[in-house]
Design a protein around this nucleic acid. Structure first.
Length: 403
RNA sequence: GGGCAGGUACUCAAGCGGUCAACGAGGGCAGACUGUAAAUCUGCUGACGAAGUCUACAAAGGUUCGAAUCCUUUCCUGCCCA
């Protein structure tokens, strides 16, 4: 077992180092690798938001690298810690979840993770298994291993403290709980986003505290969301999700600002010629749109088969460049001779949340019937056998046919 | 336990007795433009309606012709003192 063949040390180090922000520290890691046994590479999964997105793919991809090098990927589903809610980078206390909710989320999490990780050398843990067993005296002892000012070293806590924002006591426990995970699985290296640096370092401390060899830590840059500014997050509504359709992935990728293109290539794809892409972008000799098209396709290829990427491009061209009506619109059948008010129809079919919103859309010129702008809020629609195409905004279509 | 400062729409943040469905910014949506669902510019952003009406400014009461604005109590947050 331990005689397993690993790639040469420097090759491993290069692969591990690529794209990282912090790697603490390299000598320690080299030493661990040199022992010739598979490393325990740890990644914590936060099941409080069950939908994975491209931001997660950055660090998951790195974990995959460890698998490919012959090491073990240990995924810790934080079903216990999700009850606390990681305060990292937050300016507010997060809502706490119940165990049931987090278990459920954990399941869907694993399904999605398998799109990036290999099933070989993958170990999945649920940290409620050990953290849930701690007694109150255990917790007090644990809390005693760290001080308030150590906690306040962390930037986000520090900031909230200075800005007189609330910090709940349990939030201090989060880094310690995560650190306990490292102790429990005897982690050799823990991966995370840069926002996790503090938590990862606490793991190191705590392992020392328990007389274990401290883990190395590796952080990856955070990927900005499609707005190009805030970090990608479901709750900001700027994420490209694992479960998005190829078309959605395409469209969302096209909506990132041009300035974010390079970073997306670097972190969200595995393309080799990133240096070239960078120089092309900087020279401005190519319309950024075209580079973005390639990016979108590269991203889609990681989740769907290659033809999906081409199809998505085609549909995008049709819909937005040529402004044609797509051919596969949802059809709504209504009885012959029925006449319905457009505003009501929009609400019923969820094309608008409320009647007021529907009216606003009409006033703003965002609604059309068979290509003709609707100008009257009280416009009605009579379904025909050929179908009337109702368009709301740029990409919401509905065909209304008489039954 | 005492003192002080706060709680306003998705977020931040004005308003401090009528002209407030509530300035401004961000976000979101839409329109124009464009070889981009980039950038830029413009409009909209409580609900229902024809005008207009109703529900909203932590919660509950109260003062007033009239309250987000004043008073009382309650809940929540921060700071200082103990």
């Amino acid at each position: 077992m331990s005689t397993k063949n690993f790639p040469p040390l420097n090759e491993q180090m290069d692969a591990i180092r690529r794209g990282t922000i912090d790697l603490i520290n390299e000598e320690e890691l080299a030493k661990k690798i040199s022992k010739g046994r598979p490393l325990v590479a740890k990644l914590g999964a936060d099941p409080s938001s069950p939908d994975l997105h491209l931001g997660h793919a950055v660090v998951l991809g790195k974990l995959r690298t460890f698998q490919d090098l012959g090491h073990e990927a240990h995924l810790i589903v934080g079903d216990f810690t999700a009850m606390i809610g990681d305060p990292s980078g937050r300016s507010k206390t997060r809502p706490m979840l119940t165990v049931e909710e987090t278990r459920q989320n954990g399941k869907t999490y694993i399904e999605q993770v398998s799109k990036v990780l290999s099933n070989d050398r993958l170990v999945v843990h649920y940290n409620n298994d050990w953290l849930g067993r701690l007694t109150f005296p255990d917790v007090i002892k644990l809390a005693g291993s760290y001080t308030v000012s150590q906690m306040l070293e962390r930037e986000d806590f520090h900031k909230r403290f200075n800005e007189e924002q609330p910090i709940s006591l349990h939030e201090f426990l989060y880094p310690l709980a995560q650190a306990m995970d490292s102790v429990e699985i005897r982690s050799d290296i823990e991966l995370g986003g840069t926002d996790q640096k503090f938590n990862l370092l606490v793991g190191r401390e705590l392992q020392r505290h328990f007389d274990q060899e401290p883990q190395c830590i590796l952080t990856m840059p955070l990927l900005e969301g499609t707005d190009g500014v805030r970090k990608m997050s479901k709750s900001y509504g700027n994420s490209i999700n694992f479960n998005d359709s190829a078309d959605e992935m395409f469209g969302k990728t096209m909506s990132i600002p041009d300035s974010a293109i390079y970073k997306y290539f670097l972190l969200a794809t595995k393309v080799k010629d990133i240096a070239e892409i960078k120089s092309v972008l900087e020279s401005g000799e190519e319309n950024p749109r075209n580079i973005k098209v390639r990016l979108a396709q590269e991203i889609i290829r990681q989740f769907y088969d290659p033809s999906a990427a081409d199809n998505a491009l085609q549909r995008f061209e049709q819909m937005f460049v040529k402004k044609e009506t797509p051919d596969d619109i949802e059809v709504l059948l209504l009885p012959i001779g029925s006449e319905c008010v457009v505003v009501d129809l929009m609400v019923e079919t969820k094309m608008a949340a409320t009647k007021s919103e529907a009216r606003r859309l009409i006033q703003g010129g965002g609604v059309s019937l068979n290509g003709e702008k609707v100008s009257n809020e009280r416009a009605t629609l009579i379904p025909t056998s050929a179908g009337v195409v109702l368009k709301v905004g740029k990409r919401r279509y509905l065909k209304v046919k008489s039954a």
